[in-house]
Simulated scan of single mutants.
Amino acid sequence: MSAVCRAPHRSNRSRAALLTVGAAVSALALAGCGSGGTSGGSSSTKFITGTGGIATVKKADRQAAPDIDGTTLNGDKLGLSDYKGKVVVVNVWGSWCSPCRAEAPYLAKVAKQTESKGVQFVGLNTRDPEKGPARQFEKQFKVDYPSLYDPAGKLMLRFPKGSLNPQAIPSTIVIDRQGKIAARSLSPLDDVKMRKMIDPLIAEK
Rank of each mutant, 00 (worst) to 15 (best):
F141L: 11
A55V: 07
T114I: 05
I169A: 03
V87R: 03
K58V: 01
V25D: 02
G53S: 07
K112T: 06
E115H: 11
A7L: 10
V122M: 04
K112S: 13
G32D: 14
P129S: 03
Q120H: 06
S147Y: 04
K196Y: 00
L186K: 01
S42R: 11
L201N: 04
G52D: 05
S43N: 11
S163E: 01
I181P: 06
S44C: 08
F141S: 12
C33E: 03
W96C: 08
P188M: 00
S14Q: 09
P170C: 06
G85L: 09
S98Y: 10
C97D: 04
G94R: 07
L78M: 06
G85Y: 07
K117V: 12
I54E: 00
S11N: 04
P151Q: 13
M156K: 14
K154M: 00
A152G: 04
G36V: 13
A203N: 10
L30S: 13
A183R: 05
T172G: 04
G50C: 13
G70H: 03
D191I: 02
K112Y: 00
V21M: 03
T49C: 05
K46G: 09
L107Y: 05
K142Y: 02
I48L: 13
T38M: 15
S39M: 09
L201M: 06
M156L: 13
G179A: 10
K77A: 14
T45L: 12
L186P: 10
K77L: 13
K109G: 13
G79S: 15
S81E: 06
L189R: 05
D144P: 01
P8I: 08
D128E: 02
R13F: 14
T51C: 06
A65V: 02
T172S: 14
R10I: 15
K58E: 01
G34L: 02
D144E: 08
F159K: 09
M156H: 07
K180Q: 01
K139N: 07
G123H: 01
A182I: 04
M1C: 13
V25N: 01
A16C: 04
G132Y: 03
P133G: 15
V21W: 09
S95I: 10
T126G: 12
V122A: 09
S11V: 13
L73T: 11
S98F: 15
G70W: 09
G79V: 05
K161D: 12
D191M: 10
I54P: 02
G22C: 01
D199V: 04
I173M: 00
A3Y: 14
S187V: 07
G118R: 03
I54A: 08
E130T: 15
G40D: 00
S42V: 11
K193N: 03
T56H: 01
A23S: 12
S163I: 02
F121Q: 04
I169G: 08
L28N: 15
S43V: 15
V122T: 01
D61S: 09
A134C: 12
A17Q: 08
S81V: 05
Q178R: 14
S95Q: 10
L124C: 14
V4C: 13
I198L: 15
K193P: 05
P66T: 00
P166G: 05
P66F: 07
A17F: 02
G162W: 11
V92L: 15
T56Q: 02
D176H: 14
C100Q: 06
V88A: 02
L124M: 08
K205C: 05
A31W: 08
